[in-house]
Write a protein that binds this DNA or RNA. Structure first.
Length: 271
DNA sequence: CCGGACGCCTGTCGGC
DNA sequence: TGCCGACAGGCGTCCG
């Protein structure tokens, strides 16, 4: 799924719909997610007011009176805002029923996502404790990234997707940012000149920002909370475009597997 | 610490 | 038409 722009797009919709509302009930149809949904989760949430909906990396942090609900959408997850009476479809695993008759419905065919309880300070939760900085936050600078990449021999693309270095960039946007920055995804992280690292930081910011504005990228499973597709798919430069002309120089886009993930890039523009 | 491989799941698509 | 392998947005864990 869902990388940072898709989660952020979902977050904004949820904040608008749920902040200030009370959770009337929680319906768990299938507990078998990446980690089992805790037996006491529904009890902890029922009757609580939703105070805020935040995001850290690809996690949604839904703050209620007595703690935080931690939601990750995995590879194929999405959250829809629906009338609570709407009949559930296959793979609709959890409903957060609100006091206005609507619900936040979690759909996830592959069940790689999670719904966990995180307590009052979610940043201390084991899943969040070792995450790198937010790519749209002030700590993500060229100087900082250049230092983090120093001495690293792994392909820069792998390092961009390493959540301990940078939080929230997945396969789509790593491909796209490296294309915008003109950097070969196979290049060792420690062998990128400082000026080009600056360009990479700008490219990550630019691509993520544009994707958020477009409501994210829908490839297959992801949809926005109203069921609409994310529009950024039309603006992808290289992702999934093997053999098509490079938007910049018209040379055919190449595909290679790097770090067990498909990678698309332009051999002429990216060095 | 680092880099690379492997599962966890279900669904879809292309080739034979 | 049917079967089978490859592949898909993430990421914790294990191994050398």
């Amino acid at each position: 799924m869902p990388e940072l722009p898709e989660v952020e797009s979902t977050r904004r919709d949820l904040a608008r719909a749920a902040a200030g509302r009370t959770i009337a009930a929680v319906t768990v149809r299938d507990r078998r997610l990446r980690w089992p949904v805790p037996a006491g989760l529904a009890r902890r949430l029922a009757g609580q007011e939703v105070r805020e909906v935040r995001r850290r990396a690809k996690y949604l942090l839904i703050g209620v009176g007595n703690g935080t609900l931690l939601v990750h959408l995995g590879m194929s997850g999405s959250l829809r805002l629906l009338d609570a009476q709407t009949a559930p479809q296959p793979h609709d695993h959890i409903d957060l029923v609100l006091d206005d008759g609507r619900c936040v419905r979690y759909h996830d065919p592959r069940r790689f996502g999670c719904w966990l309880w995180a307590g009052a300070d979610p940043t201390r939760h084991w899943l969040l404790a070792h995450l790198g900085p937010e790519p749209l936050g002030p700590a993500f600078t060229g100087a900082w990234l250049h230092r983090r990449l120093r001495g690293r021999t792994a392909p820069v693309k792998n390092l961009l997707m390493d959540s301990r270095i940078l939080a929230g960039v997945g396969n789509i946007y790593a491909n796209e940012a490296l294309f915008v920055a003109g950097i070969d995804p196979r290049r060792a992280g420690g062998r990128i000149a400082r000026r080009r690292v600056d360009r990479l930081v700008c490219a990550v910011r630019q691509v993520l920002g544009a994707a958020i504005d477009a409501g994210g990228t829908t490839l297959r499973d992801y949809v926005r909370t109203d069921g609409a597709a994310g529009e950024f798919v039309a603006r992808l430069g290289t992702y999934g475009r093997e053999g098509e002309p490079c938007p910049s120089c018209a040379a055919p886009i190449a595909r290679e597997v790097i770090g067990q993930r498909s990678t698309w890039f332009c051999r002429r523009c990216q060095r």
